[in-house]
């Protein structure tokens, strides 16, 4: 039996090292030997979960969808054991310039819509699904312009959404897609002028990241890991900086009820097949 719990995480920004070094020390002080392996992209991380390289993975929602499909195809199981309070019930927004005369989905016909990275659930896949549900297909009804940042990072990096927002204010695109909290952040920071944009549409709620347990991972270690996570308290000054860096107030048990929207988007847009193979041709 291994004595060290190995976790995979994607290095989407330098702070990832700070975060997991902090967690490593935090767990060590509480008697759990924990180490982390950094991947440059989620695809390799999910694949590593089936090669026995890591016991758990801090997965994006899209990585969870793929892991779940790969597990089913192999007759094994993965599970989502924990997530942040801030991973639950997010929504994405389709934002237009105020006064641009775009009042409805129909007004987007013939226009250019900005999206995030090709593999961003919040800024690309889910908004595309939302538009399609309202009868609008990229290429046919509107021009999709992608603000690619770091493919393989599943949109973790905020840069693509920010670039799209900036392009919207410059009039280079007619609409931009972004997660609700980023719209709030961009307007608060002044990247989007207050009152200068209007929310044309809001998607249904969906969930974001989770800790995904690899098939055959040692149960006791994983249980201890989850137990320590859920016991982390915002009131504890040793834990609070880590929680702030990772953007949460409270760890919650994992749930898998919030990924249906993304599943639909993945199927409709042919991102992965039912076995978790990558189909998207332009995905690098």
């Amino acid at each position: 039996m291994p004595e060290t719990l190995l976790m995979g995480a994607v290095a989407y920004a330098p702070k990832v090292v700070t975060i997991w070094e902090g967690f490593k020390a935090y767990f060590a002080e509480r008697g759990l030997a924990f180490d982390y392996v950094l991947y440059s992209n989620y695809e390799r991380q999910v694949e590593a979960q089936f090669e026995g390289a890591i016991h758990v993975a801090w997965n994006s929602p899209l990585a969870w969808v793929r892991a779940e499909r790969m597990a089913r195809a192999r007759g094994v199981a993965v599970s989502a054991v924990a997530m942040r309070d801030t991973d639950r019930d997010l929504s994405s927004l389709i934002v237009v310039r105020a006064g641009a005369g775009i009042e409805s989905f129909a007004d987007l016909r013939g226009r250019t819509v900005g999206f995030g990275a090709v593999d961003s659930p919040q800024a690309t896949l889910i908004p595309l699904e939302h538009l399609s549900r309202h009868g609008l297909q990229a290429g046919r009804d509107f021009t999709a312009r992608r603000f690619d940042q770091l493919g393989g990072k599943h949109g973790d990096h905020i840069g693509g959404e920010r670039d799209a927002a900036l392009a919207l204010t410059r009039g280079e695109i007619d609409a931009a897609c972004m997660i609700d909290s980023n719209h709030l952040a961009f307007t608060t920071e002044g990247i989007l002028p207050a009152g200068g944009t209007r929310i044309l549409a809001q998607t249904d709620a969906y969930d974001h990241c989770n800790f995904t347990v690899s098939p055959g991972a040692p149960t006791e270690l994983v249980d201890r890991f989850v137990e320590l996570l859920l016991a982390m308290s915002w009131d504890d000054p040793a834990a609070r900086p880590l929680m702030e860096l990772e953007g949460l107030k409270q760890w919650l048990p994992g749930r898998t009820t919030g990924y249906a929207l993304l599943e639909r988007a993945v199927d409709e847009q042919g991102f992965y097949d039912a076995d978790g193979r990558i189909l998207a041709a332009d995905y690098r």
């Binding site: 309070d85 801030t86 929504s91 609700d180 909290s181 719209h183 709030l184 929310i199 953007g247 409270q250």
Partner: peptide
Amino acid sequence: APGFRAHVVAWCRSQG
């Protein structure tokens, strides 16, 4: 306020 619903949800999420 326009956009209130989306923003209040995002703000409450970030504040716990």
